[in-house]
Amino acid sequence: MTARLAAPAALVGAVAVFGLVAFSSGPARADTSSTTTAPTTVSTVPGAQPGTVQQTPTAVTAVPSPSAAAKNAAPSNQGGIIYTDLPASFIAPGQALFAANCASCHGPLANGVVKNGVAIAPNLEGLGAGTVDFWVSTGRMPLENISAQAIRKPPRFNRIQTLEIAAWVQSLAPGQGTKVPLVKTAGADLESGNTLFTLNCAACHTISGAGDALAFGAYAPSLHLATPTQVIEAIRSGPGNMPRFSPGNITDTEARDITAYVTGVLQHPNNAGGAGLGGIGPVGEGFVGLLIGVGVLMLVCFWIGDRQ
């Protein structure tokens, strides 16, 4: 008798637990005004990691850098993105960090290493500070082990150290490559970012930014951890298998719109309908529909009917 009672009791319990989980993880409501405010609240600290020395990008630009001013014109500011010149004082410590951490593969002059006719590490000259900042701030460099594609992991260097390495690499070919961008996503056009993301990015990163496997062991990474600075650096430098999008292709304003969409909407998706199921579309939905939907109802059948 008690066994027969246990079945409905277990059902009620299971539903209650399911409800609690969904409530605690789900967003409040289909109230999309929260989505509007999200981009404005996104931190503009690029690559800031807990436990590392943090310095806001504005502070970086505030550092007086006479040598940078002499080499280059004033920081360019188009469409909400400021491409910064790193202070000259960063170069020397950057070289030391590079020699200790990167030179074993890229060579002491960062011009790449070729062994037996195979390039084991690329020449970094002319790639620019932004490119280096992307690879190091996402933790992809230094590599842990050689695989088809570097994976994102907690960065080894703090923000200042990263920028120092970037400054040194930049000093090898001044004026070339991608600079470190500063981007304020407030006021960006989310609709434009949405459209541009769908046209230019979704084919690899998927429409939800979850990423997916590509051919020959490569994969398009998830965008859910990318900072605004990293998004711009990736667009401009085209790391790994990613195409490069120059300003003639995607303007600074458009790049900022995309960034706002990625960091504002994709990283804080409006899951008004409940648990997002990983944002991988019908694959996840099919499993839930069959296992939970059909599965639970089969258990109910099992309860209602005879079992012999």
Binding site: V15, A22, N270, G273, G274, E285, I292
Partner: peptide, 10 residues
């Protein structure tokens, strides 16, 4: 229950 707690086709 699924209709309110498991998002489908957003």
């Amino acid at each position: 229950g699924l209709g309110g707690f498991a998002q489908i086709n957003p």
